[in-house]
Amino acid sequence: MSYLKEVKRITTTGLQSMKVRGEKIAMLTCYDYTMATLLDAAGTDVLLVGDSASNVMAGHETTLPITLDQMIYHAQCVSRGAKRAMVLVDMPFGSYQSDSAIALASAVRIMKETGAHAVKLEGGEEVLESILKITKAGIPVMGHLGLTPQSIHQFGSYGLQGKGEEAAEKLIKEALMLQEAGCFGLVVEKIPAALAAKVSAALQIPTIGIGAGVNCDGQVLVMQDMLGMNNEFKPKFLRKYADLAEEITRATSAYVQDVKQAQFPSAEESY
């Protein structure tokens, strides 16, 4: 019996159970069918169709330019490849901040058109009305506090968030607020590890950290970063599990050389 036939789909209640029993949650970003099949088969619990596609797939400097239609396209691709993992979709900038009715319409489109299982929103009190509107419609929502990349121009940098007693208290307050609003989980990004531990202990819902220490209930990384596909990105929190930038360059160079020297295809590779 194959691995995928032995396990059930990861759900919001499944993630909650993992927190209760102390099993860490492994999340990675994903944007296409082929990688979804590989990451899913490797046992990844949650595939996040991140608005980081704006950076790593489209080459933009920030996450702001990506559209709802583009996020839906990437989510459709990932949903087709994920058999076990939960598929979680970032709601892009502009699809939920201005009006809760627009937020609900955006979330409904994502759920109806992609086959995904949940959406993720950045922000705290300022997006509470949108979160309430979406959760009341029966759509699972994951929150996101700390460094919220869609607000990068407001922050001014990608620096550490939640520094100082006042900022820490505000973050904990908003985390509890999001839980009360019905969020099934919370991403905490680039905050002190001690603060992330306090948030995780204070919440009944699971926390997913990125640059937030080991005491979160799970971790998330951008797939391309984890696989070493971008040698220029070297934040402190990143651990590279492969060096695919070097391997892809090596393999491609070998292919180009073989083609140039008429070494490919060989007689055995020809019809």
Rank of each mutant, 00 (worst) to 15 (best):
C183P: 07
C183M: 08
E246L: 15
K173G: 01
S266R: 01
I208H: 08
C183W: 07
Q263E: 10
T249R: 14
K170W: 09
A242N: 05
E246M: 12
E169Y: 10
Q263F: 14
M229S: 06
S270R: 09
Y255F: 15
P265S: 00
G218N: 03
D243E: 06
E165N: 10
A202Y: 10
A167M: 13
A175R: 01
E169L: 15
A201C: 13
S266K: 07
T207L: 15
M229G: 05
I210H: 08
G213T: 03
E268S: 06
F233Q: 04
A251R: 08
G209Q: 02
Y255G: 01
L238I: 07
I172F: 13
T207E: 03
L227R: 01
Q204W: 14
E180M: 11
L178N: 03
A168H: 02
K170F: 12
I191K: 06
V187N: 02
A197G: 04
K234A: 12
V199M: 10
L238F: 14
Y255P: 06
E174L: 07
L195T: 05
E232V: 12
Y271R: 01
E169K: 12
D243I: 00
A267N: 00
Q263V: 05
A242E: 01
L178M: 08
P235F: 02
A167Y: 09
Q219C: 09
I248D: 06
P265T: 00
K190Q: 09
I210V: 14
K170H: 03
F264W: 11
A197N: 03
A262C: 11
M229H: 06
P192I: 00
V188D: 02
E269P: 05
A168R: 05
Q257F: 12
S200A: 12
L171E: 01
I208A: 13
A196M: 06
A175H: 00
K240T: 05
A175M: 05
M229P: 04
C216Y: 11
V259G: 03
